[in-house]
Design a binder for these strands. Structure first.
Lengths: 216, 216, 216, 216
DNA sequence: CATGAATGAGGTTTCATTCAT
DNA sequence: GATGAATGAAACCTCATTCAT
């Protein structure tokens, strides 16, 4: 009944089938991120993918299952990108600096990350909670950050007792909220927060904040 | 043509009309915040309010107009609550501490604030941009914070050149994101971020971060 | 229950009441003629009249009753205008000429006449059939035309056996259809039938047709 | 995106799709003609067609688009029937006689033609103006009539300078108005204009009128 | 692997009308 | 005489989903 298979599997499979599934996932990601879960239309997703609507059900079962598939892909992407930073090979202060900068630019270049997570949180993470892969995908990040903090503490540059989860959340907070709420903030304060200058100021401000806290 | 009137007007009006409009606004706020704009149902709003669905259109015109009315009410509430802090009468460092604490607790007690703003941002603030009252409602906050920073700088406790908008956004970021994304964060990190202990740690962490940055 | 009174009655009555009823009739005539019976909105009628919607029901009872009142007024107007032609004092050929010209210009200046009658015919004249005044309003016209034809026949200019009803219907046909169907005709033939030249040609053509038939 | 296709296309298509579209068009024609555009109900159309309401939107997009499709079909039908008269092979006077008679009987047997056009004119032909096929469907008729008038003029039976469009409109006027306004006319004149005798008189009267004008 | 046809339930909005003063 | 508040029914249209091939 469920024709969808994870990439890990190695059994032979049609090229077309692969291409169709990826096309659906890509267009679903765009549609969900632009209109939210309730606002997304299965018709639009099919049209964006250039495929028949029935095929979505064939591969993904339902709108909610498709949404979960999109979420998993989204988390996989950012965690893979973080791995590519190789923070374990970088001096601690520089590692933090890079993590802030990376997070900022990743959110900037992947606005769908923000809106998809907002949608999932509106639904109290019901989809993610059904996922079997999600925790194992995210734990390496915290281990990595813990290692950075540990190295910094031992070399005397970082203060004691920094919780890597709290710190990661704070870094994410500062980047995420500025971008996710940019439209309302710009409107209520009557000030365009998307100008190149404002954006540069923001990155500098965030780095100051985080390092001002971490450094002993 | 439009029966709805702002509260500023003083002409006599039926008490029932007032009560009906307030009941609609309250139930709309709940419905929109729990299901998002697209997911909200006009039927549910009417039912929650114990009023005829037609009356919503009589008073508010359309779903989008109603959503804007809810948003305006939401901003009015938080800004009024902030005014009641009287930060202008408090010593600068304590003022910042109170603002962080207030923001944290306000978001905690008003989860609708977060989800409503997320919905509006998903729609690129199209509703708020049509509002004529929204800027004037929010500018006093920045003026107030600017005054606090100024006093702190002159008394030598705060560093120079802190942008009140950036600082306010950072404070909001740290509180907002932790709560708005709590469900996904708890899920991906496999750690309950809603326990009393986690919550207390968070407030302390945020205060450290903000003061670590602001203090000279 | 029915506060509405015909103009024939002489009992004292409020000036405001009169004015309100006339305002409602005028705006109802406009609304019905522009949108048809089903398309007309009681709200729009009230708004056009600058009066409360409830008042329409107070004076006219229902949408259908209001529509009948509009129809009666419409017929009364054209028949009164026809009376003012005093065709009985005019030489027969000239009388026909004047009747054609009058009919043409009356329809032209009263487009609501056409659309209201179309609406009533779509409904198989159910409203008019309930009217008690409609026949007596229209019989004088036929008597008048019969007199004209009789005079013409006796003076030798008109042929024998012309039925005044048939002739009146034909005159009306030629004027009415050209104007009532002007938009579709102009569109399907790709030719603007509303230009001054086209209109003048039409009047001339119609007069030729009618006199070509009536003259012996 | 739009599943509807014109009949000209030859690609294989499900027979059911054709049958469904035709069933919808037929029931829409009936509903629109009996109740007008505003008065017609999409539910009734679906029910009359024995099909799901959603399918109407699938094939035709909206009520207005469906109305245009009905209008186009209506014009196609009458123009095709006119072609079948083969007036080009008939002697001019007889051709006019036949055209009058045909028009009269066509309107008589297709009352929907009249009410549909009335509806479209109430809406200032907004639908037809969007049609790309409507002019080319109607131009052959005028060319044909022009040919008949030309032959008659050259053989000396018809007068000079008759505009085929004016003449066609007059023929249509005489037939159309008598039938379209039959109910109100019968009511205001207190005389049943639908009796067989009245109908026969009318046809005779109209033929006299038209030939009385056209013959030199 | 892929698709056009079809649907039941439910969405926002509109409507003529009545209530209560 | 006049009106703002309120409503039940029903309008057009949309949606995720399934059927049949």
């Amino acid at each position: 009944m469920k024709p969808r298979r994870t990439q890990a599997q190695t059994e032979p499979r049609s090229r077309d089938a692969d291409r169709s599934q990826l096309a659906i996932l890509a267009s679903a990601r765009d549609e969900f991120s632009q209109r939210g879960l309730a606002g997304a239309r299965m018709d639009s997703i099919a049209e964006r993918a250039g495929l028949n609507k029935r095929l979505i059900y064939y591969y993904f079962g339902s709108k909610d299952d498709l949404f979960l598939a999109v979420l998993e892909g989204t988390y996989a992407s950012i965690r893979q990108a973080e791995q590519r930073l190789h923070l374990e090979d970088v001096e601690p202060v520089e590692a933090i600096r890079r993590l802030v900068s990376f997070t900022w630019h990743y959110y900037l270049e992947h606005p769908e990350f923000i809106t998809l997570l907002n949608s999932e949180n509106l639904h109290r993470a019901v989809h993610l909670k059904r996922s079997e892969r999600i925790q194992e995908m995210n734990s390496p990040l915290i281990e990595l950050l813990d290692d950075v903090l540990d190295r910094g503490r031992r070399s005397g540059v970082f203060r004691d007792g920094i919780d890597p989860v709290q710190l990661y959340i704070s870094i994410a907070s500062l980047c995420y909220f500025y971008l996710s709420n940019n439209d309302t903030l710009s409107t209520i304060f009557g000030r365009d927060l998307r100008t190149p200058k404002a954006m540069a100021q923001r990155l500098s401000h965030m780095t100051d904040l985080v390092l001002g806290y971490a450094l002993r």
